[in-house]
Write a protein that binds this DNA or RNA. Structure first.
Lengths: 250, 250
DNA sequence: GTTTGTTCTTGATCTACCTCAATCCGCGGG
DNA sequence: CCCGCGGATTGAGGTAGATCAAGAACAAAC
């Protein structure tokens, strides 16, 4: 069921390699950022890397929450399904983000890859040991957690008070900023998700998302390159709309 | 401006009293829950208690975030205002909850009391020292943070996918559960907030909240006692609606 | 008990977004 | 090159909830 099980045999060798962590592209932004070389070496032995394809699940909603994951490459989607089948996208995650920490015994959300990528898997108990050995790691974890909480509050604000266009504009801006924080430059970037995914994230339908994007295009705020490529041509306009400046926007 | 400043003189004596923490009603549910007597004694010297009246601000959006607060008695509201004046209620907080932690230098949200109550104020830097002295405290803080993150995701789900009645039902249920976790029993409990506050929390107008509550009353799911008193007479019905069972609800 | 102000309720209308439906685009395979 | 299919776009009409407006219930002060 879980594709990680299927790929385990293939990847097991990698996990024990001495200095995988040293080569990790997310070393400078993820959980491990504050660790020194010795600690990273230690960490290599505790973690397993897994390569994943688009649409692969990292974990399912309801799975026992035995591991914590770091997304080291690629983009993932956090989803939650309701008893009656409705689905919501809780968030998107990028290289360096942590996935799967929960106070409960089971995952309340599911996580699936949107692109190819890799995750780094850590046993929850071993992480607790690591916390004891490297207090700076626990501090880092707490920081990331508080940051995520702040981001959640932004999203709550957007869902509760923003119009459709404001939400889409804010989403595009936050994506660009997330990419820039990870070193991506250049005017055109890729939407990692379909209109349907974006809609489920923003509490809108895919048609409404599409209409908002079309409106931005017609106003000359963005240019589209294929379905997923977006070039921002009027960033201030987009930012103004997406951050709640309301009708006073320039 | 900040009412804490105004009441400081009045309360300063209290803060230095040796064993305030021992008498603290929130000792068993708040941040300090895992601390032993010696640590609590230590903590007493680091924290200041403040009594607050309804509508008093604990801190304002934009204030420098120099302190962390524990709400020891009463109910508070977290709000956020947008550049154009729109306001959203990000959440409600009860005895034992922590307020005001943020990764930034300024508070991104404001916090105001809805009832009379008391808060316990801790300097952020001193808290870091305490973390070093009592690692169990940092662990506790992390736990509370992760729990809050899970609650935020629930709220995101509700705002994005729930109908007005579902949101109001879910809100009432979550309130009751929060009260019960704090020892409150009995069939009738008080809504801590006005219809307007509830609406701003749920992304609805006060009229829509009122209509939902009226609908529940007409269905015999609740009885009202004055404006804020609610007695739940059909809890399964409310829970079914409020947890996303959709049209299949019994 | 009356007054006064606040909060809540209920009704009528309006609108942003949803829903349903048709067409279009872009990309990979034959 | 053309086909086929999963997305994306665009249009037309419906609806949940917003908005505007009038009263009613409640609470606190006198």
């Amino acid at each position: 069921m879980n594709p990680l099980d299927a790929t385990r045999a293939l990847m097991d060798g990698l996990g024990s390699e001495a200095n995988v962590c040293m080569k990790c592209g997310s070393r400078s932004i993820g959980l491990c950022a504050p660790l020194d070389v010795a600690a990273l070496d230690d960490m290599s032995g505790e973690s397993e890397r897994h390569a994943l394809e688009p649409r692969d699940a990292i974990f399912h909603q309801g799975d026992p929450a035995r591991h914590i994951y770091t997304l080291t490459e690629g983009t993932a989607r956090l989803t939650r399904v309701l008893p009656d089948g409705r689905q919501a996208v809780i968030g998107f995650r990028f290289a360096g983000d942590i996935l799967g920490f929960t106070p409960d015994k089971e995952h309340a959300v599911g996580a699936e890859m949107l692109t190819k990528g890799t995750v780094c898997r850590l046993d929850r108990r071993r992480l607790e040991h690591l916390f004891r050995r490297y207090p700076v790691l626990e501090r880092r974890f707490l920081d990331l957690c508080v940051k995520e909480l702040a981001a959640s509050q932004d999203h709550i604000l957007a869902l509760g008070r923003f119009s459709a266009e404001e939400r889409v504009a804010g989403f595009i801006i936050s994506l660009v900023e997330a990419q820039e924080r990870r070193g991506r430059v250049g005017p055109v970037f890729d939407l990692p998700a379909t209109r349907a995914d974006i809609g489920e994230f923003l509490g809108l339908t895919l048609e409404t998302v599409s209409r908002a994007i079309s409106a931005f295009r017609k106003r000359g705020w963005i240019r589209l390159h294929g379905h997923s490529g977006i070039e921002i041509t009027d960033r201030p306009a987009l930012m103004g709309l997406g951050s709640g400046e309301g009708v006073h926007a320039a």
